[in-house]
Amino acid sequence: MSLKDLLPDGTYDEIVREAKNNSCEKDSSVIKTRCPMCKKEIVYDINNPFRPFCSEKCRILDLGEWASNHRVIKGNSVLDDEDADLLDRADTPRYNQKEND
Results as ranks from 00 to 15, higher is better:
Glu25Met: 04
Thr92Ile: 04
Cys24Trp: 11
Asn48Lys: 05
Glu82Trp: 12
Lys4Ala: 12
Ser77Gly: 09
Arg34Lys: 15
Val43Met: 02
Asp9Met: 06
Val72Asn: 14
Lys98Ile: 02
Met37Tyr: 00
Asp9Gln: 13
Lys74Phe: 08
Pro49Thr: 00
Ser77Tyr: 05
Arg94Ser: 12
Glu18Met: 14
Lys40Pro: 06
Arg51Phe: 02
Tyr44Gly: 06
Pro8Val: 05
Glu82Thr: 15
Asp45Gly: 12
Gly10Cys: 09
Cys38Ser: 05
Glu14Ala: 14
Thr11Ile: 13
Val72His: 12
Leu61Asn: 03
Asp5Trp: 00
Leu7Ala: 10
Leu86Trp: 02
Pro93Lys: 05
Pro8His: 07
Glu65Asp: 12
Asp45Met: 08
Asn69Gln: 10
Trp66His: 12
Lys40Val: 09
Glu99Trp: 05
Cys38Arg: 04
Asn48Ser: 09
Asp101Glu: 08
Leu87Glu: 14
Leu7Pro: 05
Ser68Lys: 12
Val43Asp: 01
Asp13Arg: 13
Pro49Ile: 01
Asp85Glu: 15
Lys4Asn: 09
Lys57Thr: 15
Arg94Pro: 01
Ala19Thr: 05
Val30Thr: 08
Asp91Ile: 11
Asp81Phe: 10
Asp81Lys: 03
Lys74Cys: 14
Glu41Leu: 03
Ile46Asp: 05
Asp88Thr: 06
Leu79Ser: 15
Met1Trp: 06
Leu86Thr: 01
Thr92Met: 13
Glu56Arg: 11
Ala90Val: 07
Arg94Cys: 03
Ile73Thr: 14
Leu7Tyr: 07
Phe53Glu: 00
Ala84Arg: 07
Leu7Phe: 11
Ala90Ile: 07
Ile42His: 01
Ser55His: 10
Phe50Leu: 04
Leu87Thr: 08
Asn96Thr: 09
Ala19Asp: 02
Cys38Pro: 03
Ser23Gly: 09
Cys35Gln: 06
Asp45Tyr: 00
Asp62Lys: 01
Lys74Pro: 13
Pro49Gly: 00
Asp83Pro: 00
Arg71Gln: 11
Asp13Ala: 15
Pro49His: 02
Lys40Cys: 05
His70Asn: 15
Glu56Gly: 11
Lys98Phe: 08
Glu65Ala: 11
Leu63Phe: 10
Pro8Tyr: 07
Asn22Trp: 07
Lys32Phe: 11
His70Gln: 14
Tyr12Leu: 07
Gly10Ala: 10
Leu7Met: 14
Lys20Glu: 03
Lys57Leu: 13
Gly10Phe: 11
Gly10Met: 03
Glu25Thr: 04
Thr92Ser: 15
Glu25Tyr: 12
Leu7Asn: 10
Leu7Ile: 08
Glu82His: 15
Lys32His: 14
Lys98Glu: 09
Asp83Tyr: 05
Arg94Leu: 04
Ser28Asn: 11
Ser28Arg: 15
Cys54Asp: 09
